[in-house]
Design a protein around this nucleic acid. Structure first.
Length: 574
RNA sequence: GAUUUGUUAGCUCAGCCGGUAGAGCAUUUGCCUUUUAAGCAAAGGGUCCCGGGUUCGAAUCCCGGACAAAUCACCA
């Protein structure tokens, strides 16, 4: 694969070579021990300047202001940025000024990683700055970094193209302030939840990602193949059925932060792989789980943001408990005017038609109700709201309602118009569970490709007896979006799924020469757009002649004009 | 998947009704010992996303394609 380098990349490679010539290893093996970081200096210098008289720090050069024999550098480390003051005669006290004049001024660039030692002082402008006494090259950067400048909160030349930011997250993290903070906060959310569960004595477990039956949710799975067993395996769409097997096995409470995979559309709220936390607790019901969920979320919001109020898109979201509780059928009645509680499938179809909701023959009663709720109600629930008591057809793994057997003991938590949690009083009646699975099978036969499959081992587990249990699943990505004020899931995933990047395949001039092309033309052909030998051989010689001679004229190349016979020799060397 | 918009220098973007491709930052070369979007002077840097068409002439108009974003639909 050839390298098509920009001018700036060539300059940097030349600098790299010069560093080697000066006996400087631009990628040294030795550790560079640091004694502090940018944040500690900025926060601590005013109080105790005596603590900052001899220190070592390392980071990336983000900007340089060179004024002859003195320079200022912005150095970025993991904690932030700090200014360096580099003075020629302090860096090079002897006669040899190479380190400053050549290495620092010419061979180092924005993006390079260096380590320095020195002492802290304050400039005339009042900025806390490190006066550099020695400098070590730690890593030479061969690609120019996007230069983002900032003044008074105003950003100039910001690196904002989402595609580039997500594809090159490393660059995004380097140049865009705040991106790192989002991901630190993501980890804090997860840690906060984990601590909460552990304090309650629940056990974090791991369950299979490769599953022979993709169960526990209604979704299209990814399929793969196991060679040794010669069977298909599915990437999990949920871990519910495994966690419940563990409750059968006698654990009081188990939870897992799980990557799930769903082979569906991608947009600003959906990524093919996403993170869900599922927890199952024995001897509890969904009423207990609602209290538990509220308590947890209030605490997570407080721990992570410092408040129970979160701003998103000019909307204040209040996470202080208790959250509102609304029965789904009441919600539908309120927002559509229809009381669907005792409607048959035919009547529901009719209602959908009246509401202008599209249906198709594969949709059963549960899916119809779900669709009505999704279309007409969901977006109304901005403040955290539990939607409760779903119809039994929508919830094949959930226990029937203690007061109404057509309903189930289920809640979903909606925040900002989006579902972020789903919980049940779990169905532990193996007879009923088998019947519900069989209902799903019928849906599947009608063409619903999201209907659940029967998991016989799971039924066998239930037949051994599962204690009354309540389970909860929370979409971690969406929760993190809420708690970081982001409106797209890609902003809270370090590496969101992207369409594969099309790398332009180019060759070197040498490969052209090896294929028979005259050496003086090889580089020019490449420059003119012939990036493969194939492309050249597929073009009629007259066209090549025209193109290359036009190119020769335009670029004022000092070699004789290209002749047809020459091109014929390239294409047919014999 | 549909609709709309976009793709021009390393980055952010101009480029009108078709007539030799522009700016700022970055880069290179000078000058400058407390600057801070450092400054001053000069220079280099382009497959105007790709392929066709119209035209004497296309970055610009038309058609097709690729990729992206936003909105909508489906799913968490």
């Amino acid at each position: 694969m050839g390298l098509h380098l920009s001018e700036q990349e060539i300059v940097r490679r030349n600098s790299l070579a010069e560093l080697y010539q000066l006996g400087i290893n631009p990628y040294p093996q030795a550790a560079f021990e640091v004694t502090t970081n940018s944040k500690a200096i900025l926060e601590g210098f005013e109080q105790k300047p005596e603590d900052f008289q001899q220190l070592r720090i390392a980071g990336r050069i983000m900007s340089r202001r060179i004024m002859g024999a003195a320079s200022f550098v912005e150095l970025q480390d993991a904690a932030g940025r700090i200014q360096l003051y580099v003075k020629r005669d302090d860096l090079c006290p002897e006669d040899d000024k190479t380190l400053y004049n050549t290495v620092f001024k010419h061979l180092l660039d924005i993006g390079d990683i260096i380590g320095v030692s020195g002492f802290v002082f304050k400039t005339k402008m009042g900025e806390i700055t490190i006066h550099v006494q020695s400098l070590t090259v730690l890593s030479k950067s061969l690609r120019p970094l996007p230069i983002v400048k900032e003044k008074d909160g105003q950003y100039y030349d910001a690196f904002t193209d989402p595609e580039q930011r997500y594809r090159m997250r490393y660059v995004d993290l380097i140049v865009n302030e705040g991106v790192k903070e989002t991901f630190i906060r993501r980890t804090k959310v997860i840690n906060s939840m984990r601590n909460f569960f552990n304090e309650h004595g629940y056990l974090e477990v791991e369950t299979p990602i490769l599953q022979p039956i993709p169960g526990g949710a209604a979704a299209r799975p990814f399929i793969t193949h196991h060679n040794a067993l010669n069977i298909p395996l599915y990437l999990r769409i949920a871990n519910e059925l495994y966690l419940k097997r563990l409750i059968v096995g006698g654990f009081d409470g188990v939870y897992e932060f799980a990557k799930d995979f769903r082979n569906e559309g991608m947009d600003r709220t959906h990524n093919p792989e996403f993170t869900v936390m599922e927890i199952y607790v024995a001897y509890k019901d969904y009423l207990w789980m609602m209290d538990f969920t509220e308590t947890m979320l209030e605490r997570v919001a407080l721990e992570v943001t410092g408040h129970t109020t979160v701003m998103i898109n000019d909307t204040e979201l209040h996470f202080q408990r208790p959250f509102k509780r609304v029965k789904i059928l009441d919600a539908i009645k309120e927002h559509t005017g229809f009381d669907i509680s005792h409607m048959s499938e035919a009547e529901l179809l009719d209602t959908c038609r009246k509401l202008g909701i599209e249906t198709d023959p594969s949709m059963g009663r549960g899916k119809l109700i779900d669709t009505i709720f999704g279309e007409k109600c969901e977006h109304h629930f901005i403040q955290p709201t539990f939607i409760i008591d779903y119809p039994v057809e929508m919830s094949p793994l959930c226990k029937r309602h203690r007061e109404d057997p057509t309903l189930t003991e289920r809640f979903e938590l909606f925040v900002n118009g989006k579902e972020i949690a789903n919980a049940y009083t779990e169905l532990n009646d193996p007879i009923d569970q088998r019947a519900r699975f069989e209902e799903q099978l019928k849906l599947s036969e009608r063409g619903d490709d999201e209907a659940m499959l029967i998991d016989h081992d799971f039924l066998r587990a239930l037949e051994f007896g599962m204690p009354p249990t309540s389970g909860l699943g929370i979409g971690i990505d969406r929760l993190v979006m809420l708690l970081t004020g982001q409106t797209s899931i890609q902003e809270v995933l370090l590496f969101p799924q992207m369409r594969p990047e099309k790398l332009r395949k180019t060759i070197t001039p040498q490969e052209f020469i090896e294929a028979g092309v005259s050496s003086e033309w090889a580089a020019h052909l490449l420059q003119a757009g012939y990036t493969t030998v194939e492309a050249l051989k597929n073009e009629p010689p007259t066209i090549i002649q025209q193109k290359m001679n036009a190119y020769r004229k335009k670029n004022k190349i000092d070699i004789p004009a290209l002749q047809i016979e020459t091109i014929e020799k390239w294409i047919h060397p014999d």
